[in-house]
Design a protein around this nucleic acid. Structure first.
Length: 381
DNA sequence: TCTGGGGTCCTAGGACCC
DNA sequence: TCTGGGGTCCTAGGACCC
């Protein structure tokens, strides 16, 4: 009998916030949000306790990167501006982001998964896909339960993640990535969902189309305007109509996705395509009046990108800039050079050429520098 | 009280070459 | 003497994701 393909999607629960709760267990059960700059570190008190900042009176441009479940109950969520969140949940505790710490726990949980199932695709700091097809026991029935084996393998992964990190995760296991990604959200936090194709009509079709990874705000709004709300309604559309309205490629994909079909493999290795650094200013800057400040930030961004490239051993041929104006309009300019580089001064010079091609009448909110077209740096330098 | 930072992929037009 | 067709590279913007 051929092995049945089993793909898991594993998503760490409220990852950044959960890591912070390991460090500050006294905050468990409270509304906590992560985000903003360095200015709200917990302050040690004379009695040895810590005083935590709250959202009340927050002024600045930060957004929430993660909110604990009690904070979500107050109506705040990731991506929301901190000022807006402060109005909804003024007493929620605010902690600054600490990427070094999150990266550390990211490595830990991925290593814990790899001990059980080594075929892993990285999807960022807090989620992965895992191919469970060849994991011992995955194809076996347990008693009268044909899915008993796969369930046990997934549970063992979850157990090992908690053992090694103290953090919980939610896992979806299905025949493909698309369904597993949806599945991992069905029982969150700390849940396990195993689905087969037979479950699609009952468990997938009633969900809103936005649950499909790849249908974002734009496509979601367009579908809604067409009267299509659920994945089932999308599946019921004639393929030809989707091709007409969304183009050959995206239309065909929408049709397949709605039927739960996806044959993408789990990709265990990939090379980076670009590296970038960008920053949003505390206040909008003007190209002339704030020239010195702008120049300083610009050079620093180039240096940081160069440092990232060198640390990871890459060079790039395309240097680009990104500008966001006060009205949030965004433009990019890039230029490809003959010889790939990771040199800060070279990046700075080419990026400077790019900047000259932009009309800088409006004030700037964000400045970014990117190097693309990457290749591995040779040891000869 | 708007909207961070780091990515990938796709599209589309023009340049340029054969 | 009036106009091809394919391929690749470059650039800009946009959708989407974590």
């Amino acid at each position: 009998m051929p092995a049945r393909r089993w793909i898991a999607h594993l998503d760490m629960d409220a990852f950044y916030a959960s890591v912070e709760l390991l460090r500050y267990p006294q905050l468990r059960g409270l509304p906590v949000v992560i985000g903003g700059g360095r200015r709200h570190q917990p302050q040690p008190q004379p009695d040895g306790s810590l005083k935590f900042a709250t959202l009340k009176g927050y002024a600045g441009r930060g957004v929430i990167t993660t909110a604990t479940y009690p904070a979500r109950d107050l109506g705040v969520h990731s991506g929301m501006g901190l000022m807006k969140a402060a109005m909804r949940a003024p007493d929620a505790i605010l902690l600054p982001t600490d990427f070094d710490s999150y990266r550390h726990y990211s490595r830990q949980f991925k290593a814990a998964v790899a001990e059980v199932a080594p075929v892993i695709e990285d999807r960022g700091i807090d989620e992965i896909y895992i191919d469970l097809t060849a994991v011992p026991g995955a194809q076996e029935a347990v008693g009268h339960d044909p899915l008993g084996g796969i369930r046990a393998v997934a549970q063992e992964i979850r157990n090992n993640v908690v053992r090694r990190t103290g953090l919980t995760c939610s896992v979806g296991v299905t025949p493909n990535k698309l369904l597993s990604k949806i599945g991992s959200e069905l029982d969150k936090p700390d849940g396990l969902t195993v689905l087969t194709e037979a479950d699609i009509p009952t468990l997938i079709w009633p969900l809103p189309v936005r649950r499909i990874n790849g249908i974002g705000p734009k496509a979601g709004a367009k579908l809604q305007a067409m009267g299509i709300r659920t994945i089932g309604e999308l599946a019921a559309q004639p393929r030809a109509r989707l091709l007409e309205d969304f183009g050959r490629s995206y239309g065909a994909w929408l049709h397949e996705a709605a039927h739960g079909r996806d044959d993408r493999p789990v990709v265990t290795h990939s090379e980076p395509v670009s590296m970038s650094r960008e920053t949003t200013f505390d206040r909008d800057l003007h190209a002339v009046r704030d020239k010195a400040e702008l120049a300083g930030v610009f050079t620093e961004l180039c240096q940081r990108v160069a440092q990232d490239l060198q640390r990871k051993g890459y060079v790039g041929r395309t240097v680009g800039i990104k500008l966001r104006f006060e009205d949030f309009a965004t433009v990019t300019r890039d230029q490809t050079i003959d010889t790939a580089t990771a040199d800060a001064a070279t990046i700075r010079r080419v990026a400077g050429q790019c900047l000259k091609r932009v009309d800088l009448a409006r004030r700037l909110r964000l400045l970014g520098v990117r190097v693309g077209n990457l290749s591995k740096a040779s040891r000869l330098g």
